[in-house]
């Protein structure tokens, strides 16, 4: 139980996917102009990461490992995650139009995102058990959401500030992201696994 909590805290803060591992920078910079959309994106990422880690765990230990096909890990994971997200999108669109409106538009954006693939690969590298994989995936998703929402809040305020012309737009966003990452480095040493 304690190790599960440690995995969760480590995934959210210490090894934050965006700000410490630098995975998923594309949606981090692309969909972070408004807090509202960044929350929607974050929820979609949490969901996709949890589902992907469950499925890839089964693929790894029931198909790839028995046949000594570990070297096919990356391509097999991408294949499975992409088709799975497509499938989920279809089902959500049919079953719950409301959920699709708020979550569905973000799903195609993250089908083969490196953060999602990163969760699946790290699960195997750290030889997590099934439950540990799931907790790690959810923690990684929460960490991603946290970084997104913080960054979107900062960007909303920066929009109203008299930024020098040369720094406007992406330049000031990248500097802010760097400072935010530095701040998160302060969590290093919080958890030792």
């Amino acid at each position: 139980m304690v190790s599960l909590i440690l995995i969760l805290v480590s995934a959210v803060f210490v090894n934050n996917f965006v700000l410490a591992r630098f995975l998923g920078i594309c949606p981090f910079l692309g969909v972070s102009k408004k807090v509202e959309t960044s929350i929607g994106m974050g929820m979609a990422v949490i969901f996709v990461m949890a589902v992907a880690s469950v499925v890839t765990w089964f693929i790894q230990y029931f198909i790839l490992a028995p046949f000594n096909l570990d070297y096919l890990q990356t391509i097999a994971f991408i294949l499975v995650i992409a088709s799975l997200v497509q499938l989920v999108e279809m089902i959500v669109q049919k079953a719950s139009p409301v959920l699709y409106q708020s979550l569905g538009i973000f799903l195609p954006l993250i089908t083969t995102n490196c953060a999602v693939l990163g969760v699946a690969v790290l699960n195997i590298q750290n030889s997590y058990s099934f439950i540990e994989s799931l907790v790690f995936a959810i923690g990684a998703g929460i960490g991603f959401t946290l970084a997104m929402v913080l960054f979107a809040g900062l960007r909303e305020r920066i929009d109203l500030c008299p930024v020098p012309d040369a720094f406007r737009g992406t330049a000031i966003a990248l500097i802010t992201a760097g400072l935010l990452s530095l701040a998160f480095m302060g969590f290093a040493g919080l958890v030792k696994i």
Partner: peptide, 9 residues
Amino acid sequence: AAVACLGGI
């Protein structure tokens, strides 16, 4: 096995 596995998936 690799072809069959990936093709199967």
